[in-house]
Design a protein around this nucleic acid. Structure first.
Lengths: 338, 338
DNA sequence: TTGAAAGCGCTAACAT
DNA sequence: ATGTTAGCGCTTTCAA
């Protein structure tokens, strides 16, 4: 059996209280000699605190729940790694929950994590959630008095912490780069238009256009669904327009565009400049490395976890939205307009 | 505050014991009427059991630890998803631990997970571990009486459960396919030769050669390190040999070979047939979709978690090595020999 | 059929 | 400076 504080107490002839006080560096007047005594006994016995017992008694389990759609998606696994790294550095652990993008499972996992007394939840709202459902999950979290930080998805929930990429800036950076290269007729392959992230990217694009004195043309917008197929499907649309460049609102669709162009014997960037968004895939496995607006996903996970732990330790701090800056990563899929 | 059993006891006028017995369907003779009474009260109060308390008192926390090198690697995130899915189905949860392939961190996390009273650990040994170090981790697990299942990596540890791909069969399948296409001079770009997984792939390749009456030529073997760069670096070697096909022991190196060939203006499969191993990347984002030997990674995670839970529930069952069958996935990077 | 009581390992108010 | 005591929420023996 694992040694407990009781064993240390027995071995030293002290009480369990003194042992607890000494081991936890509590501001009781434990004289150095006694502390030494306890610490030595603990070392000799190979004592390790039982986190379950400490969690049950005290207020804190040092555990976070992480709810996300699917860890197989590199976006979320990077987020997760960031969160876990931050937690490890601070002595916390992470319980991982995959929802398969189902709101029902969001709700289930919130309950389960509360049952397990996690101290807080890092929450990527499942994308099948309506605004109402997102509010419902957050209400559940509230009714459980469970602190949480929303990651990546801005569902328009007020009064909570939020960490995500500044998509307005992201859209701006992507568009500005194409404009800088001399492109004047640029198509957009967006994601679902009701998503805040897409609206903001679009805003950013428009701002870049304004700066350059270009008129935004809604006829050059193709609404995709973030999947490769929709990028591929957009190619027919693209080739019917007089454009020299396309900005895809994620990399998957950019690769779909690659595929559609390839099938038609067209080349990137010779025939069309392509820029993506996210930059989560290893870029060197594809023939023409993709220029892309990188979301700092790992950092997002880290920032989210840190924020969560801060909030747990100081519940009174004000809610904030943390916008992380995207970075334009130049590769070979964009070329100057000729 | 969350309602507890005490609250249910108060509300029903029964004792906490009876409540516990009724809620947990224990084989005490609780008459249906009493149980109803308890269940109703529980529902009305919105009672949810406190898993921390149950874990502290009882023997089981229904929690597994999952130790792996880096969740950002799609191989491990698929494994993780499989494990988590299996756990969810059975009412278990997963604490995720990334080791960055460092043995020291393996050891640390084993301790931490034990401190948290997980019931078992799914363990992907970090690849920087020597055989001795792998044995050390397993010894630590043993000394903590912590049940565990090794995943993916066969470090030659005896007396424990192990779930991994049948790499002998994988090597066989890949080589047989190339032979079937008429290739007779085939290069291998392997991983580090001391790894069991590589040895077994090589064995499988040799067996396929024997079946076809081909002599294995060690001069056609290039030892890579599983990274893209080493695949790319192998191309000089490959082009100096009289070969028509190459079998890379993972996909990353296969993509490195793609890259090296592309740079030299050579085409896959026209100039060289290429077959990979793992099949974890989305194959449709690359120009020439890669033929590859697929490891059933998701299933591996699932099988591992199931095995772990079985062992926890029946500690006496015999240890077993579960070999999962790889699958040859035909795509466009291999062509008949001309 | 039900309940009292002990205890899992720990923390913390209170006492000495 | 240290110990006594109570209790976190639950399970489980033992007794009634």
């Amino acid at each position: 059996m694992r040694p407990t504080m009781k064993d240390i107490a027995q071995k030293t002839g002290l009480s369990v209280t003194t042992v607890s006080l000494a081991l936890n560096n509590k501001p009781a007047n434990i004289p150095p000699r006694t502390r030494e005594l306890v610490l030595n006994a603990a070392r000799e016995l190979g004592y390790r605190p039982n986190k379950l017992a400490a969690g049950l008694r005290g207020k804190c389990t040092n555990t976070l729940g992480l709810i996300l759609p699917d860890i197989r998606n590199v976006f979320f696994s990077s987020l997760c790694k960031g969160a876990e790294d931050a937690c490890r550095e601070m002595g916390w652990n992470v319980i991982l929950c995959n929802t398969s993008d189902s709101h029902r499972r969001d709700m289930e996992y919130i309950q389960i994590l509360a049952d397990r007394s996690v101290d807080g939840i890092l929450y990527c709202i499942s994308s099948d959630s309506t605004l109402l459902q997102a509010q419902e999950s957050c209400k559940l979290l509230g009714s459980l008095s469970m602190p949480f930080v929303l990651l990546d998805r801005d569902a328009g929930i007020a009064g909570c912490d939020l960490v995500l990429t500044d998509h307005r800036q992201g859209g701006f950076l992507g568009a500005r780069h194409l404009l800088f290269l001399g492109h004047r007729h640029i198509a957009l392959v967006t994601g679902p238009s009701h998503l805040n992230g897409c609206k903001q990217r679009l805003d950013g694009v428009k701002r870049a256009y304004e700066d350059a004195g270009i008129v935004f043309d809604p006829a050059l917008v193709y609404e995709g669904n973030f999947r490769l197929e929709s990028g591929e499907a957009s190619v027919d649309f693209l080739l019917n327009k007089k454009i020299s460049a396309v900005f895809a609102f994620n990399d998957m669709m950019a690769y779909g565009i690659y595929k559609g162009l390839r099938r038609r014997g067209l080349r990137v960037p010779r025939d069309l400049s392509v820029i993506g968004y996210d930059d989560v895939f290893p870029s060197d496995i594809v023939g023409v490395p993709l220029t892309s607006v990188r979301q700092p996903v790992y950092e997002m996970g880290k920032a989210g976890a840190r924020r969560m732990i801060s909030r747990i330790q100081q519940p009174q701090i004000l809610c904030e939205t943390k916008l992380l800056s995207p970075v334009l990563v130049l590769r070979e899929s964009t070329a100057p307009f000729k």
